[in-house]
Design a protein around this nucleic acid. Structure first.
Lengths: 356, 356
DNA sequence: CTGAAAGCGCTTACAG
DNA sequence: CTGAAAGCGCTTACAG
């Protein structure tokens, strides 16, 4: 591996000050966009900065000042796509603001997770932390962060704690819309597969489904509701249950795409044509959702926008003139997107009771 | 958002030294595991460190010393799964060694990508950088990094530059093994879909395919070789070409899973049963590969192990007593894993020429 | 509008 | 085996 650059080391604030004929304090003012610098002086400093390609060193700023210009992202990977999306939004927003994103992958069930968090925080002193599920619902993690005084924004947390900033999408409404779509296509017997019972989104999505069904006077047949756990296999299992009913559903709405793909696989093995014999809808817009035939009707979560918003909130709160946010501004809800693709259509025959 | 913790600030090295009745230099020695500290003194210091929950502040260590304890990860996201895998391996290894991972998502085609890199490096002064494709093959990125003197490890680079550390898997051999598997099942007419022509892996995988075919005296029929670009759609297109041949292949080997999924979708639309009418093999073990029916036979890249190794090399090179690596130790090749699943089987009939 | 001084919390030479 | 001093490169009060 190449050894470290030898020769003249990088320019410091002292070099810039000397070259520009001002004090280092003035250079600091210009760089931090503080008021009270004569326009002419400012320009002169900026010119020298450009000439020397001067870049302030983060460690020095961090040690001397109150900010580290570091935002932390804590995650425990359920879905690669989710993490990648979060990161995309977060790193871009960080760069725009001169911050940097430090990521740490933690195991949600680690017995010493609180000390792991504490360790990271006291070494890095990040200006804020973004937490993703399920870590954002882990009391030990939240406690460790609270004790360290690190500002946090939770992404799609289960419960919305008072005073705790969060960013989410409207799961209930999105699930309602998916259900409405199926109903509008003519489906009446709609199977539903719930997500993992310990995850907040599961309840919310079921709620949306139930709302829409009731609103159309369709009622909730317990026979058509299966408990899943967000895995492909639980989708397969749920589908086998639903499709063995005396009166089969003409559509199945799974609480996420992995389970919807399980339903699709099960239907194909049973020789059912999708969507003509069975419509299928998912949730998440996972990469695989568009890599199967037929591509899945699903809901796209604005994951990168949510992350961008989370970072935005942390940076804003970090400014010296920041005002504490009102409770109503602490919880942001971002718009989702309904993606209608080829896995859903009107039921082949009238949705009457018949056996195949 | 919660305000910063007030009250007594975190303990510093001075507090530990005072409490332990030694100088700060001794505390520093113990913490950095430097030699020349009496065992009794060491224990005493460690005891106080634990009592006070003292954690050295990264910015201070970084400013005073030669190391920043930061490793950078530069990526331009082609595949979420790849990035997630890299990160998993990298963050875990970093944590074990007391380092932290800073990630930056860059656009490979950005005209100012060199200055973006330069900016990140001069602010952070990371002790090393991990580069993933295609950034690891971007001359502007490599040049900026070289000029800054930042040690780099490239993951799966296209060309293996002399003196430039890299980590990869053996694409050629893996593709050979996949092809051998198909041949051993009885396939003779095997279609191949190449990856994007500007990516190094494409050529390597084709090479492996060609090697195996020739080794078995099967030759390379240009009619059975399609150019793809690693996208689902190019897999669909390639499949349509291959399956419209007068004499259809009985198996298709696609250079990655996304294309293999395209082949699967195309086959299903044409009414072909997979694998009995057509065997399909992919490459990458993408999440979707096991979320379809039938699940894909594919190759798992040891992405997280590769990232772990890359970080390992950077950390090792960063030690004060580090020796420059010999050329042969600069390039690591990690073992892959062949995953034989249900998308491949023996051809239904003898692989004779027939029309369906 | 501008600057001289002190200090952030460590590590690096250098002594003993 | 241990320590006193200097210094890393910035920002923070405080003056003028």
């Amino acid at each position: 591996m190449a050894s470290r650059a030898a020769g003249s080391s990088a320019p410091t604030i002292v070099d810039v000050a000397a070259q520009a004929g001002v004090s280092i304090k003035t250079v600091s003012r210009v760089l931090n966009q503080e008021p009270g610098v004569q326009e002419k002086t400012r320009e002169q400093v900026l010119k020298v900065v450009a000439e020397l390609k001067y870049r302030p060193k983060l460690s020095a700023r961090s040690l001397a000042g109150a900010r580290s210009f570091l935002i932390g992202l804590l995650y425990y990977d359920p879905s690669a796509a989710f993490v990648a999306g979060v990161q995309q939004g977060a790193t871009l927003r960080c760069r725009e603001a001169g911050y940097h994103l430090v990521v740490e992958s933690l195991h949600n069930d680690a017995p010493d997770i609180d000390s792991q968090v504490e360790r990271v925080v006291s070494a890095l002193r990040p200006d804020g932390m973004v937490l993703t599920p399920p870590l954002c619902d882990n009391p030990k993690v939240l406690k460790a962060l609270r004790e360290s005084g690190t500002p946090c924004v939770l992404m799609s947390p289960g419960r919305q704690a008072k005073g705790q900033a969060s960013v989410r999408m409207d799961d209930v409404h999105a699930a309602e819309e998916v259900t409405n779509l199926l109903i509008s296509l003519g489906h009446e017997r709609i199977g539903f597969i719930r997500g993992a019972s310990d995850q907040a989104a599961s309840g919310l999505r079921y709620q949306g489904f139930a709302n829409a069904m009731k609103a159309h006077g369709l009622g909730l047949d317990p026979e058509l509701i299966q408990q899943g756990d967000f895995t492909f296999q639980s989708g397969v299992d749920g589908a086998h249950q639903l499709l063995s009913r005396r009166v089969r559903p003409t559509a199945v709405f799974a609480s996420n795409d992995d389970m919807a793909l399980g339903v699709l696989a099960a239907a194909q093995r049973l020789g059912l044509a999708v969507p003509s014999d069975l419509s299928i809808a998912g949730f998440d817009d996972s990469p695989a959702a568009s890599l199967v035939w037929p591509p899945l009707t699903t809901v796209r979560q604005p994951v990168d926008q949510m992350a961008r918003m989370a970072v935005e909130m942390l940076i804003a709160a970090n400014r010296s003139d920041a005002q504490p946010l009102a409770e109503s501004d602490l919880h942001r809800v971002l718009p989702y997107e309904l993606l209608v693709r080829n896995s859903t259509c009107a039921p082949a025959a009238k949705p009457v009771t018949k056996r195949k």
